[in-house]
Design a protein around this nucleic acid. Structure first.
Length: 804
DNA sequence: AGCACGCCGACT
DNA sequence: GTCGGCGTGCTC
């Protein structure tokens, strides 16, 4: 009879991907609960790692030697039963380690920091090693900082017990502490103090009045000062006199910089109220249905979300709303915040790690029952969820592109099943996968085919740039678009211009010999960055100066190729000198909050034109925008990706939806070299249903999703032939097991062969029904352990976003 | 991951 | 002989 705990340790390997049993020491027996983080010894020596309690067993047996849990990191569990259970499912589904899943579910500050230290125990004769301890007997130890020789010496000294290696597990999760005040003087004593004060000691009197009014209230020092106009030194005097007890109290950081205006439910049209009723019924009946809400841009999907959430809250349940990347849609965030106020917690990339932790704690403590956030918010520790919403469900940012490669939609559906609540997947252009499921009856389709207030859809004109190039010689701006922009400026209306950068880079090419400057580590061309005056690699971050002559043929005719936002901005400014242009791309929005600031400036009418990349296509709602121009619609058509038409259609439909959202009518120009392409033609009418049918036909003929499921298997190694050999080995195993209806592509080198000096080879499997595939892939993973230690990595991506 | 153990060739 | 390289296996 022992007190035992099963722990998932933070050692992400296949061999340790199961709970390890530890003894619970008596001093922790009362404290420990399932879902808490602990520190446990692991392996030989004094190594310690973080772990999560998976199970507690008070009369357990275990044969074999046991180690004891060393300490606990939490006062409350950080994972509830639901999330613990989900981590297991997720690990299985995404072919990753359970500990990796657990750690992605938690705010990043809860990931322990491991730090090694060297401790000098005895005198040592080696000068070079002794130097390390010149300042102190205990020093931080990062093996990378030392050469092999010294490391060897350190190791041998350790064996002789002259040096100890200490392992520290540090908890980074730290709450913000502020000074708190607790009244420490009562009734008669207050009057006594009051009478002994000098008559001009007004501040001291006010403090005593305050204490008399709120004798038991704890207040932060800052709040007291601000509210009663008292200086810090006055408070200090009061503390010295013993009126207050001063102490450190926990506080939440406040991530909301500006106050949000309150808003109220709007009147719904027939389609919208039908949607709210259907979802509401499902909430009432504890029915975990998935609704696909297909609504044209401007059809009022957001109001449906808000009122459906209202229903869930009215039943005492919580609501989770997911958006692509909240920093991209501050307007949406403010709308939810304005409707539900302090009950809302926000989780997005714009917050600091500390702010994210605080928002997470507010949710975990039940202080927030509405959560709005991007991908990782799907793991928000809400209990009793009544509704999950996924806005823009087709958006690719919902899929994490490194391990664990989960799709937010799958996690959302899992949680909905657990809580028996509905999911709304909303979009103007649903993913083909989701739309096809609606056709099959797996999801319930709700359509919002009309814009609210019966606004007409914007008039979309397609401009053939082949003709334009012949006539005016300009490949960026057609004369029609230019005159439309000038016309808006003269009327005081605004224009949004989008430069489609997907699959497009401004690289440098020699016009004499055709040389293209590439990254020395990755097989990819370097991108020109005018702000830093350097060439950068977008994969590994390599940076070098802009060449002024060709490194290959030494000719000076080396120029940039392709169009960057900066170049377009310069050109446009020349063409229309009086235009006020705001440029929005990765470079101008890198700093925290700059995205919101630029949008706000544009919204206040401080500029005529908003010029940007795809980031301007989503969710913006500016009533004064009456013209939208897409400068190059087709760059994303040319990508070697079976989803390129779908992506192009989505992008054009979304950006067109930015025009004419109020009374004024909208006009959209789409410039393209492929004016007859169906994705471009159909986006003109915003005819999603027709696009869906056309594209499904093509997918059917070409054997692509949603007609097939896909899996991508990748092997990477510094040595190209090793990666290739591994993939051929895997393909042999697969060929033997898979049915003949399954299609296997490869093994082939990935389209970007080399990233960060590693070579990539891949296999794509396309299958319809392959019940043994999952087990087979697990088997492959089990058998690559030895390779992983040598730097040969095998990766499995179920339902990959692309085949590159 | 991080460490020890054990087998092998190269060397004072 | 033995030092240091590297492949292999184990961690409750």
């Amino acid at each position: 009879m022992l007190n035992l705990a099963k722990i998932i340790v933070d050692v992400p390997t296949m061999q340790t991907n199961e709970p390890y049993t530890y003894q619970i020491p008596d001093f922790l027996n009362e404290q420990l609960e399932k879902g808490m983080r602990v520190i446990v010894p692991f392996g030989n020596g004094s190594r310690k790692v973080q772990g999560i309690i998976w199970e507690i067993n008070h009369d357990g047996k275990f044969d074999g030697k046991l180690k004891a849990i060393e300490s606990v990191m939490d006062l409350e569990p950080v994972l509830n039963d639901e999330l613990l259970l989900m981590s297991k499912w997720m690990a299985n589904k995404t072919f990753s380690f359970q500990i990796s899943c657990i750690l992605t579910m938690l705010p990043s500050v809860m990931r322990a920091k491991y730090q090694k230290q060297l401790k000098l125990v005895d005198d040592i004769d080696d000068e070079n090693v002794a130097k390390i301890f010149s300042k102190s007997k205990i020093v931080d130890f990062n093996p990378e900082e030392f050469n092999k020789d010294i490391l060897r010496k350190i190791l041998s000294l350790k064996k002789k017990n002259k040096i100890e290696i200490k392992y520290n597990v540090k908890n980074k999760a730290q709450s913000k502490k502020i000074l708190g005040l607790k009244p420490n003087i009562f009734d008669n004593d207050i009057d006594k103090e009051l009478s002994s004060l000098r008559s001009n000691a007004i501040k001291q009197k006010n403090i005593l009045y305050y204490i008399r009014d709120y004798p038991n209230k704890i207040i932060s020092q800052r709040k007291l000062c601000k509210k009663y106009d008292i200086s810090e030194s006055a408070v200090k005097t009061a503390v010295n006199k013993g009126w207050f007890k001063q102490f450190q109290m926990e506080a939440y950081r406040n991530p909301y910089k500006q106050p949000v205006k309150r808003n109220y439910p709007l009147k719904l049209n027939a389609d919208q109220s039908n949607a709210v009723i259907q979802v509401g019924n499902s909430i009432d009946n504890n029915n975990s249905k998935v609704f696909l809400l297909e609504g044209v841009t401007g059809s009022g999907k957001t109001e449906v979300y808000l009122q459906a959430m209202q229903k869930a809250l009215a039943m005492g349940k919580t609501a989770l709303m997911l958006v692509p990347e909240i920093a991209l849609t501050p307007q949406m965030a403010n709308r939810v915040k304005g409707r539900f106020g302090d009950r809302v917690a926000m989780l997005h990339s714009g917050l600091s790690n500390g702010e994210k932790y605080d928002e997470w704690r507010r949710i975990n403590n039940g202080e927030a029952d509405v959560v709005v956030g991007a991908r990782s918010a799907v793991f928000a520790p809400l209990k009793n969820i009544g509704l999950i919403i996924m806005d823009e469900e087709h958006d690719t940012s919902y899929k994490q592109d490194d391990t664990p490669r989960y799709h937010t939609r799958d996690v959302a559906k899992w949680r909905a099943k657990y809580y028996k609540c509905p999911v709304i997947l909303g979009s103007a252009t649903p993913s083909l996968e989701s739309r096809a499921r609606a056709t099959k009856g797996v999801y319930s389709l709700i359509r919002l085919p009309h814009r609210i207030n019966n606004q007409s859809l914007p008039d979309v004109k397609i401009i053939d740039m082949k003709n334009e190039l012949i006539n005016s010689g300009d490949e960026d701006f057609s004369s029609e678009l230019l005159s439309a922009i000038r016309n808006r400026i003269s009327k005081g209306e605004q224009t949004v211009l989008m430069l489609n950068r997907r699959g497009y880079s401004s690289f440098i090419m020699c016009r004499t010999c055709g040389f293209v400057l590439k990254c020395p580590n990755c097989d990819i061309s370097l991108t020109l960055h005018m702000d830093t005056k350097t060439m950068k690699c977008h994969y590994c971050g390599h940076e070098e100066p802009i060449p002024y002559k060709c490194p290959n043929c030494h000719d000076k005719k080396i120029r940039y190729y392709g169009t960057g936002t900066q170049k377009v901005q310069k050109k446009l400014q020349k063409l229309i000198p009086n235009a006020q242009i705001i440029r929005m791309d990765v470079d101008t929005t890198r700093r925290k909050g700059s995205h919101e600031r630029l949008l706000q400036e544009f919204g206040q009418g401080n500029a005529d034109i908003l010029l940007g990349t795809q980031m301007i296509a989503k969710g913006l709602d500016f009533p004064n925008v009456t013209l939208v121009g897409v400068l190059n619609a087709d760059t994303s058509l040319d990508l070697p990706d079976f989803r390129s038409s779908e992506k192009t259609f989505e992008l054009l439909t979304q950006v067109s939806g930015r025009a004419g959202r109020a009374e004024k009518e909208g006009l959209v120009y789409i410039q393209t070299f492929n004016p007859d392409n169906y994705a471009i033609q159909l986006s003109r009418q915003q005819d999603y249903e027709k696009f869906y049918r056309t594209e499904m036909n093509i997918r059917h003929i070409t054997n692509y999703p949603p007609y097939y499921f896909t899996v991508k298997i990748t092997a990477s190694d510094i040595n190209e032939s090793k990666a290739a050999a591994k993939m051929f080995e895997i393909s042999k195993i697969l060929k033997a097991k898979l049915s003949d209806q399954t299609i296997m592509l490869g093994p082939s080198p990935s389209s970007i062969l080399r990233i960060k000096n590693k070579y990539y080879y891949q296999i794509i499997i396309k299958y319809k029904n392959e019940p043994s595939l999952h087990a087979c892939l697990e088997y492959i993973l089990q058998h690559y352990q030895k390779d992983a230690q040598k730097g040969l990595y095998v990766n499995i991506d179920p339902n990959p976003l692309n085949f590159m």
